[in-house]
Computed example of a mutant assay.
Amino acid sequence: MIFRFCVVFFGLSLTFSHFVQADSQDEYELLDRIGSGNSEAGKIKSREELCQGCHGEIGNSSSAEYPRLAGQYADYIIKQFRDFRSGARQHHVMNAVASSISDEDLTDIAAYFASRERVRAQQRKAIEVAEKIYSNGDMRRALIACSSCHGSSGQGSYAGEESVPTIGGQHKLYLREQLLKWRSGDRANSPGGVMNMVAKLLKDEEIEALAEYISSM
């Protein structure tokens, strides 16, 4: 798994007439994003299971405490949910919620949120320090560019069995919180621990700048 992730790190029948994802005009790319779930069923299930109460009706939550899920890769949503279920990732609400939803329902719910259009800012903010790190990294610190995995616009990527999450347009406060958790080790569920290694190289002001910059994508 670590080797497969490194390849990504360094290199990187439903109809969809009701669910068009702006990042994925190509049908096969859209299928990769949505996965095997039934997005129409997921719309109903996400409402019944109260997912929409925190994450928003179409996955664009208004509260920074809860991440935006619209346009996220379904398999990434499923992985995070299972990590909450197992305790590999901690959250005061999600650990309890995760134990009450079946894998079948989870697959459909993830497909629904993945099928929705992610939030896009009208204009990307010009933050020089963040732009340099995001686009080019810093080889003096062995800090790899964020875009190597997450794409030039934070759209994420998919390679075989694993996806790199969509982060563009995510809440600034949520992005900052996760980077701080990666750095401290409070969160440690990325493949091969790569996000912990990256975040430990970042200074406080760089985390703040990156969160601001990525949220404006």
Rank of each mutant, 00 (worst) to 15 (best):
residue 4 R to S: 03
residue 14 L to I: 13
residue 15 T to E: 05
residue 15 T to D: 09
residue 16 F to T: 15
residue 19 F to C: 11
residue 20 V to M: 15
residue 21 Q to E: 10
residue 22 A to P: 03
residue 25 Q to I: 04
residue 28 Y to Q: 15
residue 28 Y to L: 13
residue 28 Y to D: 14
residue 28 Y to T: 12
residue 29 E to A: 03
residue 34 I to T: 10
residue 35 G to Q: 09
residue 35 G to D: 08
residue 39 S to V: 14
residue 40 E to K: 13
residue 41 A to D: 11
residue 42 G to Y: 09
residue 47 R to G: 05
residue 48 E to T: 15
residue 48 E to P: 14
residue 49 E to P: 09
residue 53 G to R: 12
residue 54 C to M: 05
residue 54 C to Q: 08
residue 56 G to A: 05
residue 59 G to L: 05
residue 61 S to P: 04
residue 62 S to C: 03
residue 63 S to N: 10
residue 65 E to P: 04
residue 66 Y to K: 06
residue 71 G to T: 11
residue 74 A to H: 14
residue 79 K to A: 13
residue 81 F to I: 13
residue 83 D to E: 13
residue 84 F to M: 12
residue 87 G to Q: 06
residue 87 G to K: 12
residue 88 A to V: 11
residue 91 H to T: 02
residue 97 V to E: 07
residue 99 S to F: 07
residue 99 S to C: 12
residue 101 I to M: 07
residue 103 D to A: 14
residue 104 E to S: 14
residue 107 T to M: 14
residue 111 A to N: 10
residue 114 A to C: 06
residue 115 S to I: 15
residue 116 R to G: 01
residue 119 V to W: 04
residue 121 A to F: 03
residue 121 A to S: 10
residue 121 A to H: 03
residue 121 A to P: 00
residue 123 Q to M: 09
residue 124 R to E: 09
residue 125 K to C: 04
residue 130 A to V: 04
residue 131 E to L: 00
residue 136 N to L: 01
residue 141 R to T: 04
residue 141 R to Y: 04
residue 146 C to K: 08
residue 150 H to M: 02
residue 154 G to V: 04
residue 162 E to D: 00
residue 164 V to C: 09
residue 165 P to Y: 03
residue 165 P to R: 07
residue 167 I to W: 05
residue 170 Q to T: 02
residue 171 H to L: 00
residue 172 K to E: 06
residue 175 L to G: 07
residue 179 L to S: 02
residue 180 L to G: 06
residue 180 L to K: 15
residue 181 K to E: 00
residue 181 K to Y: 03
residue 184 S to H: 05
residue 184 S to A: 13
residue 185 G to L: 01
residue 189 N to R: 08
residue 190 S to K: 11
residue 197 M to V: 02
residue 197 M to E: 11
residue 198 V to C: 03
residue 207 I to T: 05
residue 208 E to I: 07
residue 209 A to W: 04
residue 210 L to R: 00
residue 214 I to V: 13
residue 214 I to T: 02
